[in-house]
Computed example of a mutant assay.
Amino acid sequence: MIFDASMKIKMRLSTPLFSLVVLCSCIVYGQSQWRPLGEVTAVEKLANGVELSAAKTRVRITVLAPNVVRLRYSAEGNFAPDQSFAVLPGAFPESPKIQIEDSTNAVVVGTGDLQVRIEKSPMRVAFLDPHGQVISEDHPRYPVSFDGSAFQVWKSMPLEEHYFGLGDKTGPLDRRDLAFTTWNTDIGYQESTDPIYKSIPFFIGMNKGSAYGIFLDDTYRSSFDFGKQFWDAYSFGAEAGELNYYFFYGPDPKRVVSDFTQLVGRTPLPPLFSLGYQQ
């Protein structure tokens, strides 16, 4: 009987607490002038992907390899010239075969290794494995949004998922429950200082041994929040620039890293004499 009574007390306390957390989350999201994508109004099939319109925003999703997908968002509907300081031109020269299914509620792009499902109302992107299991998806409560030149992407964060990457950062190897800024700052720092001197906007998500990676190709000051703001969502965004990111599916983390380095380039092995007295 004592156990039952304590459980009832916990339930009474947890219900208003949960409601307060949800309310605070909505208030935080509402404080900024974020403009969500809204509903898909047009779909155009491409040879290597699909292009969608949602109000004045255009989204171009292209398949570079069976497990590598690029997503570009133009808030005003006009894509800038395709150029990058990080990505190698022609990194994936062979376009894979894809299948595109356009139904009333969603568009599905299949590669054999991966499915990209774009829900139409409201627009929301999900990545699924060949068995239809969700690998990663846009958060249903916090859609991809724009605020002037800034943008933010929120993804659902499973309880057992963990995050690694972003280059040289202080803190633990697992980035879950932490938030970071990528903006090179070479000053004296302590264990919790952020940002510091290196910006690599790439991370790996691991869930029950299955891995995927996301690379945000943006040179502006950007942010990565792995559940510090919302307990069930992680996010990434930047102050300006085009929302342009790449999704890599493993499920082996070695494959994710290999495809990422194929995209941005690999450091050649230096000759032995260049190591000097460290030989």
Rank of each mutant, 00 (worst) to 15 (best):
F3V: 10
K10T: 10
M11S: 13
T15K: 15
L17G: 07
F18I: 05
L20E: 07
G30V: 05
P36S: 09
T41E: 10
A42T: 10
A42Y: 11
E44R: 13
N48M: 09
G49E: 04
E51M: 12
A54M: 04
A54H: 02
T57C: 15
V59W: 00
R60V: 09
R60P: 07
L64V: 09
V68Y: 00
R70G: 08
Y73W: 12
V87G: 07
G90I: 04
E94G: 01
S95K: 14
I100V: 15
E101M: 12
N105P: 04
V108Q: 09
V109P: 04
T111H: 09
D113K: 12
R124T: 04
S136P: 01
E137H: 08
R141V: 10
Y142G: 01
M157G: 00
G165K: 05
K169I: 14
T170Y: 02
T170W: 03
P172N: 02
I187Y: 07
S192M: 11
D194L: 07
S199F: 04
G205F: 01
G209N: 03
S210L: 14
F215A: 04
D218Y: 05
F224Y: 14
G227K: 01
K228G: 01
K228T: 06
A233L: 06
A233W: 02
A238F: 02
E239V: 14
G241P: 04
N244G: 05
F247W: 10
F247M: 08
F247C: 02
F247V: 08
P251C: 05
P253W: 04
V256K: 03
V257Y: 08
D259E: 15
T261C: 10
G265K: 09
G265I: 11
T267N: 11
S274F: 11
L275D: 07
G276H: 07
